[in-house]
Write a protein that binds this DNA or RNA. Structure first.
Lengths: 105, 105
DNA sequence: ATACTTTATCGCAATATTACGATAATGTTT
DNA sequence: AAACATTATCGTAATATTGCGATAAAGTAT
């Protein structure tokens, strides 16, 4: 995206933007929904459900993991992913606060 | 972003992603906050406050307007922007529903 | 009409995202 | 050890985003 001037903005603004960016793609929305519905699952389970290749799904999982919305635990031969309730709550609070402050106009 | 497979996903998933993408950049977060705080303002007012050029701010405003989060009315020689409460409510509801369904794990 | 003010758009360059196949990495099973 | 299964990473191509300067567009004021 070009030279994003993140250093000028506040920590909150950057964090909110990062959390929003994590769900700013329908595939990641779908992955989160599937993860929540199934409780926890493997990369392969998601590949079966979505029209994306294994490497693409893995990259989306990485993006979600980096922002903290999901976490993965190594289990047997594969990695088991599940939603991270703490970051989820953080996102819910930040977005809630953000939208509450929009109450004017 | 490459060939995004939006046609596969549901309308809701795409809409949620689009709304999230609108606030997925700190500059747009800052613009929305400034707009809400000031009630309504001109492009020039935002340019004074942010470390971005006039054309860049105008582009961010366009992105916010396209997703419906803000609306602009022509006033005198300039355009007056303000938050659109309806789309804001839509975003709040969609995100709220999304996060509520994440309550498991 | 001309100059001025303000916003929108164009064109460009730099960087990021998305997606995939191929391959590496890691552990399991035979 | 060899074959297998699963996920992560690399390399690459196509496209999108971000940002800016320059310019167009449109209205106001002199």
């Amino acid at each position: 995206m070009g030279i994003s001037k993140t250093e000028f903005f506040t920590e909150d603004q950057n964090r909110l933007a990062a959390l929003a960016k994590a769900i700013a793609h329908p595939a990641r929305v779908a992955i989160l929904q599937f993860l929540a519905k199934s409780g926890a699952c493997f990369c392969g389970d998601i590949v079966e459900v979505l029209p994306l290749s294994q490497s693409t799904v893995s990259q989306h999982l990485k993006a979600l993991k980096e922002v903290g919305l999901i976490k993965g635990s190594i289990e047997k031969t594969s990695t088991c992913y599940c939603v991270d309730p703490e970051t989820l709550e953080e996102a819910r609070l930040m977005l809630g606060k953000f939208f509450n402050k929009m109450n004017c106009c």
